[in-house]
Design a protein around this nucleic acid. Structure first.
Lengths: 339, 339
DNA sequence: CAATTCTGCTTCATCGATTGAGCAAGCGAG
DNA sequence: CTCGCTTGCTCAATCGATGAAGCAGAATTG
C-alpha cells in the first residue's frame, strides 16, 4: 500500500477519507486538541494510527498561514568561523526547540546589505521574532521588523530601538588588560603600554573595549600610546596588514597586546610568524574571545570568554516575558584561567 | 500614513484596493511575470510604487502553499564547533541564495533521534531538497524524504540510497600518514608505528582513514600496532579519556599520532598538557582537518584540509542536474604546507 | 414525557498568493 | 459594419490546516 514515486503528499483530507471522517476531526486529533474538540478516543486513536501508517507530515505552510503565530524564530549571525558565534547559534537552536519554536538562522557575512535582505526574507517567512546578532545596523532591522509587527532583540551588538543583550565589554576588557599588564610587570619588571588590535572603531563593543583598555592603563599609571590603538576591522588580513604597517612606522614594538577577537588574532599570529618579529620572545597576549587552541598557543595568553549560555538565557527571558522596552543587558564574560 | 502599532500586515488585497485593481494583477506584478500576464507598464509601476510605500512583504507561507515548489533547501549539520562544518554551512548558504533558494539549517548535535526529528521538521516546512551532512543514519533520512518525494544528498558521510559527496578519506589519510612517518624518520631516524585517535569505528570516514593509515604504514614497512588504533568518538573528552587509559596500559607512548579531527585534537592536546607526557618533546602530529590555530601549535603538525568549496560545488551540481542515482563523489582534501 | 444538556462529530469560511479561464474594449482587415 | 485578434485586465478555484458555529442523537433532569 505504499504510495508510488512521489505522488502528492498525504494531507488531512486523505486521512479523513481513509478514516471515514472529516478533515476537521483529523486536524483536531493531530494538532493535539481533540479533547477540547470532543473527539472520541477511538476515533483519535484510529486517526493517529492512520497518520503513522501513511507517513503523514503536517504542511507547515498551510498551518502557519491559518494560525496567527508562526512559532518560527529567526536569527541573523555575521559568521560561522569562530567558537563564539558557533556556540551562539547552537545554544539558540536548542533553546528555541525547547520552547516549541522553529529556529531559522542566516549568516550575513558582516555585509550590511545582506543583513537587510535577510531580515526581509525572515519577515516573508513570518517569523514571530528576530534576533539580530552582531548586526552592523540593528536599528534599521528593528525598524523594518516593527513595521511588520515583529519583535526584535539585539545580541552581541546593541541598538537603540529594542532590548539588547551584550557582554560587559568594558569590564571584560578592563580585566583582560589588567592581566596582560600584570604579566608584563612579572616578566619585564615594568608595565608598558600595550597594543590594541582588531575590531571596528565605530562599533559599540570595540569602543567599550578600548575604554576598558584605557581604564586599565590609567589605573596602572601607564599612558596609552595612541599610535598603538589599531581598530582596523576584524578580518585576519586586516589585522595582519595593520601589524605590518605599524611595524614599518614605529620603532620598538610593544611587549604585549590586546587582540579584539580570535579572528583578528589569527591575522596577528600569522604576521608574527611571517615577519619574524618577536622571534626571540613572544609578546604577552590578551584575547577578547576564547578558542581552545589559542589557549595552547603559549604560556602567556590571557582570554576572556563571552558567557554565551547566560547571554542566550537573557535573550529568551526577554522573548518569553514579551518585554520590548529598550534596555541593555550586559553579561560579564568569563576570565579564563591560564597556567 | 504609517500604519498603527502592528495592525495586520499589508497583503496583495490591500494593495489592490489602494491601486483600484485586483489582487491578481498585484500578484502578477510583484511576482515579476506581469509581461506574461499582459499587465500594462503603467499599472505595474503604480503597484510597485504602492508596494514600496506600504512596506509590503510577500507572505511566503501563502506563496509556497500555492506553488508546487517551495524553493526552500534544508541542511542538517552535526555541529558548529569547528571550521569544517562552519565553512560548509557558510558556503551552503551562499550557493543556495545564488540560486534563489532559501536555505534553512539545523544542528543535530550528533544525536540520531534529533536527526530524524529535524528531517521531519524540514519536510513539514516543504523543503524541495535536503542535504544530510555527517548524518549518523543517512539512509533513514533518505527513506523518510523519498516517501515525501523530497530529494536528498549526503555530504561528508555517505549513504547507500542517494548521491553522496565526501572527501577522499583514504587518499587524504594515506598522504597525511606518510608525512607524519616521514617526519618521524627525519626526527628520529626511523619510522615507528603511529597512534590513531578519534572518530567512530563504525563510520565510513573513520574506517577509510584507518585504511589509509594502515596503507601508509604498510608501504613504509612499518607494522601497525593494533592497540594504538583508538576510534573512541570525536568529542574532546572521549579522545582525552582514550589517551589516559592508553597511557595506563602501554609502555612507551608512540612518537607520532594521527588525530581524526580538530575536535578530537582538542582533547588530545589537553591530555598532553595535563598529563605531562611528552613534556620533553612534543609528539609528531597529523590532523585530519584544518584549523588556523592548530597550524601554529608547533613545528611538526601536518594537516589535511577538506576542500569545502569543491564539495559544495559537487553537491549543487547534483542538485542542479536533478540527478538522483546513487553515486559517491570523493573530493581530494588539500594537504596544508607546514614549515 | 418534554426540556435541557452533553457528546461527537460535520460544515464552511478563512489565511494570502497563484493561475487558468474568461470577458470587455479597442483596433485592423475585409 | 462585422469578424477576429490583441490588449489588459478580473473572477474564482485552489493549495492544506484551522476553528467557530451548528447539528443530530443520546443521556440526563424536572
Amino acid at each position: 500500500m505504499k504510495r508510488g514515486t512521489q505522488t502528492k503528499r498525504t494531507t488531512i483530507y486523505d486521512l479523513a477519507e481513509l478514516a471515514g471522517t472529516s478533515a476537521s476531526a483529523v486536524s483536531a486529533v493531530l494538532s493535539g486538541n481533540w479533547k477540547k474538540r470532543r473527539i472520541s478516543s477511538q476515533l483519535a486513536e484510529k486517526i493517529t494510527r492512520l497518520a503513522e501508517e501513511q507517513g503523514y507530515a503536517l504542511n507547515m505552510q498551510a498551518s502557519v498561514l491559518r494560525r496567527e503565530r508562526s512559532k518560527i524564530i529567526g536569527m541573523l549571525v555575521p559568521k560561522y568561523d569562530n567558537r563564539y558565534f558557533g556556540s551562539i547559534v547552537e545554544q539558540f537552536e536548542t533553546r528555541a526547540r525547547e520552547r516549541g519554536l522553529f529556529p531559522i538562522i542566516t549568516c550575513t557575512r558582516r555585509d550590511p546589505a545582506l543583513e537587510i535582505e535577510a531580515a526581509r526574507a525572515m519577515l516573508s517567512y513570518q517569523v514571530d521574532c528576530l534576533i539580530a546578532t552582531g548586526a552592523t545596523d540593528p536599528d534599521r532591522i528593528a525598524d523594518i521588523c516593527s513595521a511588520a509587527g515583529v519583535r526584535t532583540v539585539n545580541l552581541d551588538l546593541p541598538g537603540s530601538r529594542v532590548p539588547s543583550v551584550i557582554s560587559d565589554n568594558f569590564g571584560g576588557a578592563l580585566e583582560l588588560t589588567r592581566r596582560v599588564l600584570a604579566n608584563s610587570e612579572r616578566e619585564f619588571g615594568e608595565k608598558t603600554p600595550l597594543l590594541f588590535v582588531g575590531g571596528r572603531g565605530t562599533d559599540h563593543n570595540t569602543s567599550e573595549r578600548v575604554r576598558g583598555f584605557r581604564a586599565a592603563h590609567a589605573e596602572a599609571g601607564v599612558e596609552v600610546d595612541e599610535a598603538l590603538v589599531l581598530t582596523c576591522g576584524y578580518a585576519p588580513e586586516k589585522a595582519e596588514n595593520a601589524m605590518k604597517s605599524l611595524a614599518d612606522k614605529v620603532g620598538p614594538l610593544p611587549r604585549g597586546m590586546f587582540v579584539n577577537s580570535t579572528i583578528s588574532l589569527e591575522g596577528v599570529m600569522r604576521w608574527i610568524r611571517r615577519s619574524g618579529h618577536y622571534a626571540d620572545r613572544m609578546p604577552l597576549l590578551g584575547c577578547f574571545d576564547w578558542d581552545p587552541f589559542v589557549a595552547m598557543l603559549g604560556d602567556h595568553i590571557e582570554m576572556v570568554r563571552q558567557d554565551v549560555p547566560r547571554m542566550l538565557d537573557a535573550v529568551f527571558e526577554i522573548i518569553d516575558s514579551g518585554a520590548s522596552e529598550l534596555k541593555l543587558i550586559q553579561i560579564p564574560p568569563i576570565v579564563e584561567q591560564t597556567g
